[in-house]
């Protein structure tokens, strides 16, 4: 594989984490414009752990996920009482606060004679773990997709468990879910925490992939994108947001020759897609159909 392809696929993988994070909240019926905050927290926390404290990458990523998850729980408690547009805008406000705090955040240590660490609006450069430990682009790609596969496995297990059922019930009808004895508030905060941790892992991977982060990366654009991925790819399965990311980055890469008209075509395609399929390509109906057909084939073979 050439470096360019590896680079594109790495981006697809890393962005998939934040797309999955927004998707998890869509499952419980909440729109978040703010998952980029946890992506940012994960990126900074993991970057600080490896570049400044000399932690190994695995520990750094875990730390990033933990800090992001904890932050998501803390924000989730007051905001998840809100609903609909109120929740969406509250998450947006929080994420912008995080971005602006990153612009003010300075924490530098001199390493190898050079100041290293977050430096306000200049960002956090020289997250050199992959260079110092001689991790090649292909190796890092494998790492990204291994973690992504683990996350997807988690989603599949969740969808089959009581937890997944509870999440989807809350998404469908909060009052009804409450009447069925589901502790709505607790499950919502749990979902927010898990979503935050997912975004945090993505952020940690992003920081080590690109080796530098800037606060501006984590602005509203990233948040709305991650939300859009689920809508484009489909809300029926966790593969939906991944498909959304693939369509976004893949389509944008493949129409590069159109240069200045790229976004015009891309925006038009997405708008048209949403008219035809308002809940995405892999929506609940498609997923249900595929699952039924699959079981029927299985039964046919069994007889």
């Amino acid at each position: 594989m050439d470096d360019y392809l590896i680079g594109v696929l790495s981006n697809v993988g890393v962005i998939s984490f934040i797309a999955l994070s927004a998707y998890l909240l869509l499952l419980i019926g909440e729109i978040s414009f703010g998952q980029q905050a946890f992506f940012a927290i994960g990126a900074y926390a993991a970057g600080i752990a490896t570049a400044l404290w000399g932690w190994p990458l695995a520990a750094g990523l875990a730390w990033g996920a933990a800090v992001a998850g904890a932050a998501a729980v803390l924000v989730g408690v007051p905001t998840l009482r809100l609903h609909g547009l109120y929740f969406a805008i509250a998450t947006l406000a929080f994420a912008e606060m995080v971005r602006l705090l990153c612009e003010l955040f300075r924490y530098q240590i001199t390493i190898d004679g050079e100041p290293t660490g977050p430096n306000g609006a200049d960002g956090f450069r020289n997250i050199r773990y992959i260079f110092e430990n001689d991790i090649g682009p292909l190796q890092f790609l494998v790492l990204i997709y291994a973690l992504l596969a683990a996350a997807l496995l988690g989603f599949m297990l969740m969808e089959r468990s009581r937890l997944g059922v509870a999440f989807r019930m809350i998404g469908e009808d909060v009052a009804l879910a409450g009447l069925q004895g589901i502790a709505v508030a607790r499950f919502k905060v749990l979902a927010a925490g898990l979503a935050g941790a997912l975004a945090g892992i993505g952020g940690g991977l992003y920081a080590h992939l690109t080796t530098y982060v800037e606060p501006r990366i984590f602005d509203v654009m990233l948040g709305v994108h991650s939300l859009a991925y689920g809508l484009i790819g489909g809300l029926g399965t966790a593969l939906g947001p991944l498909l959304g990311v693939l369509i976004d980055i893949g389509l944008l890469e493949s129409i590069r020759s159109l240069a200045g008209y790229r976004m015009i075509i891309f925006g038009g395609v997405v708008a048209f897609l949403l008219i035809v399929r308002p809940r995405g390509l892999l929506d609940e109906t498609v997923v249900h159909y595929v699952r039924r057909t699959w079981y029927q084939i299985g039964r046919g073979r069994g007889n």
Binding site: L26, I31, V224, L227, A228, L231, I232, G260, Y261, R262, M263, I264, F266, G267, G268, V270, A271, L274, I275, P278, R279
Partner: peptide, 17 residues
């Protein structure tokens, strides 16, 4: 939600225009 996301896609379009 589809309307909102669609309006975001058109945002990209308008910015490029």
């Amino acid at each position: 939600i589809a309307s909102m996301v669609s309006s975001f896609a058109i945002w990209m379009q308008l910015e490029q225009a």
